[in-house]
């Protein structure tokens, strides 16, 4: 069987080397590009992100990223956001008192973790995944590698509308509960770095690739 074709979105975000290699190791045919045709055609699109929310959003916008990501989502085509690539899917990010708009795929704000814990939240933490997620299948009890100082700390999505499949939200805790991952139809995202989370992270990427 041919390997699923995955594009890692190239918009100048930090170290994407590891994401590319890890996805290859997990069984994908990976291309690092910003070419719009490739972004649209790929079986899966990965949106990495390192640094400040506003800077990542600016860099994405500079290549018209939100439009192409949005178009994929509208077409039911899988997208995986990682770290700040997860955060920018929410409505807004507030860092150092500066608010920036995100893509608004989900309600909620990215805000500073509580100041009574060690920050950045850096290291291997546990998650609480709901039943039946694709990403955490078989690795629900593993730890994943987080590096961040900001997070979405509430889930305001109206999950009571029966005609809509409720997104599956996975939580973690550091000073406060925060969203570690979301699965919502074609759109998935993780606050942690699966590409740096050893065997557990590799399995998560494989789970995603196998779903493409």
């Amino acid at each position: 069987m041919a390997k699923p074709d995955v594009v890692v979105l190239d918009y100048g975000s930090g170290n994407v080397h590891s994401a590319v290699r890890a996805l290859e190791r997990a069984g994908a045919q990976v291309t690092l590009t910003r070419e719009t045709v490739r972004i649209q055609e790929a079986a899966g699109l990965v949106v990495p992100g390192v640094g400040a929310f506003a800077a990542v959003m600016d860099a994405l916008t500079a290549i018209d990223g939100p439009r192409w990501i949005g178009r994929r989502i509208a077409g039911g085509r899988p997208v995986l956001g990682i770290c700040v690539g997860h955060q920018i899917l929410f409505e807004r990010g507030v860092e150092h008192g500066i608010a920036a708009d995100g893509m608004g795929e989900w309600p909620g704000e990215v805000t500073a973790l509580p100041d009574d814990v060690v920050v950045p939240h850096m290291g291997w933490n546990t998650v609480r995944a709901p039943e039946g997620t694709v990403l955490f299948d078989g690795i629900e009890d593993e730890r994943f590698y987080f590096v961040h100082s900001y997070a979405v700390q509430s889930w305001d999505f109206d999950q009571t509308v029966e005609s809509m499949a409720a997104p599956k939200v996975t939580w973690s805790h550091h000073g406060a509960d925060f969203i570690a991952a979301v699965e919502n139809g074609p759109l998935s995202a993780t606050q942690f770095h699966p590409e740096k989370s050893g065997d557990a992270g590799m399995q998560l990427l494989k789970n995603w690739i196998d779903s493409l």
Binding site: H17, S18, R21, A22, R25, Y145, V147, E195, K196, S197, G198, G201, M202
Partner: peptide
Amino acid sequence: VTRTAEEVFIP
């Protein structure tokens, strides 16, 4: 560093 990062998926 490059060769390590290509093969070992921890920070």
